[in-house]
Each structure stands twice: as structure tokens, then as C-alpha cells.
Amino acid sequence: MENRKYKVGVIGKQDVILPFRIIGFDTYPISLPNEAPNLIRKLAHENYGIIYITEDIAEIIPETIAYSDKKIVPALILIPTQDGSKQIALKQVEENVEKAVGQNIL
């Protein structure tokens, strides 16, 4: 059995993702949301197991988020920005729970 170590990356606007660099995650600041899909694909090929992405970016690339939800690795985790949550991440969790158990128990 192969013992694979996955990396953790964070995608978003520079000011939002800077704290993640302090705790040791690889950060990838982007200024244009349309840069995110290619960056996500690139990180997936570079052994990233978890990719945090800010909700403001995720909101603009729903097709990429939906495609990644079907994959086991990398796991895309949506995080709010300093402007607050857009509830996209909560909706995503609710949908995944509903798929898993047949109803929304949250």
C-alpha cells in the first residue's frame, strides 16, 4: 500500500488567504475568479488533498465546484471571506448530507 502525503492549498484573494500561510498552508492568491478552475486542476495534479477556496470565488465557478464534489481527492472546502459567509458552504454540506442519508437532517 502506498503511503501518500497530501498537501493543503488555499485559493482566494490575497488579504483573505494570508492567515493560512502563517499556519503553514500553501496559498495561491488570485485576482480574477476565472483563474481558479485551471489552478484547481493544477493543484489536483500536484498531490493536493485539500483545497480551501473562498466562497466569493466558488460562487463564480459553480461547474468546477460541482465537478470536484464528485471526486474524492482533492476535497474542495469553501470558506467565507471577511465580508461574511454567503451560505454557499452550508448549502453544499446540506446537499452532501442529503445525498448520503436520503434527507436533510441538518
Rank of each mutant, 00 (worst) to 15 (best):
G84T: 00
K71Q: 15
R21K: 13
I61L: 04
I61V: 10
E55P: 02
G49C: 13
E98A: 15
G24V: 09
A58C: 08
T27I: 15
L43S: 00
Y28F: 15
A75T: 15
D56K: 04
L39V: 09
V8H: 07
Y28S: 01
H45Y: 05
V16F: 00
P37G: 05
V16M: 06
P74Y: 00
D69E: 14
I22C: 11
Y6M: 11
M1K: 11
T81M: 02
A100V: 07
N38V: 04
L18I: 12
L78H: 04
E59P: 04
P62L: 06
E46G: 05
V93E: 07
A89R: 11
D83G: 01
I61K: 02
Q92F: 04
V73H: 10
D56I: 01
K42D: 10
Y67L: 12
I40F: 03
I77Y: 05
V73L: 13
T27A: 13
N3F: 04
K13Q: 05
I79A: 00
Y48K: 06
I88S: 13
P29A: 07
K7A: 06
K91T: 08
V8L: 09
L76Y: 05
N38W: 08
A66F: 12
P62A: 09
K86T: 09
Y48F: 12
E55C: 08
K86F: 03
P33G: 00
D83M: 01
I60Y: 02
P29W: 14
E59L: 10
L106K: 10
A89S: 12
E98F: 03
K70E: 15
K13M: 12
D15P: 02
I50G: 04
L32M: 11
I40K: 01
A89C: 09
Y52D: 05
Y28D: 00
I23Y: 04
N3E: 13
L39A: 11
E35W: 00
R4L: 13
P74K: 01
D56G: 03
F20T: 08
N96A: 12
K5M: 14
R21S: 15
S31D: 15
E94W: 05
I22T: 14
A89V: 06
K7D: 07
E2K: 07
A58G: 00
K91N: 14
L78Y: 04
E63G: 06
I61D: 01
K5C: 05
D56F: 02
A100S: 14
I61C: 06
V101Q: 09
K70M: 13
I30G: 05
N3V: 15
I23Q: 07
P80Q: 06
I79L: 13
K86S: 07
G49P: 05
I72T: 13
F20L: 08
P19N: 12
K7L: 09
K99L: 12
K13Y: 05
P19R: 10
P80A: 04
P29I: 07
F25Q: 11
D83H: 02
Q103E: 12
N34A: 06
Y52V: 05
E55A: 04
V93Q: 06
G84L: 00
F20D: 07
I22P: 04
P37E: 04
E2L: 10
I17P: 01
K42F: 08
I60Q: 10
G12R: 02
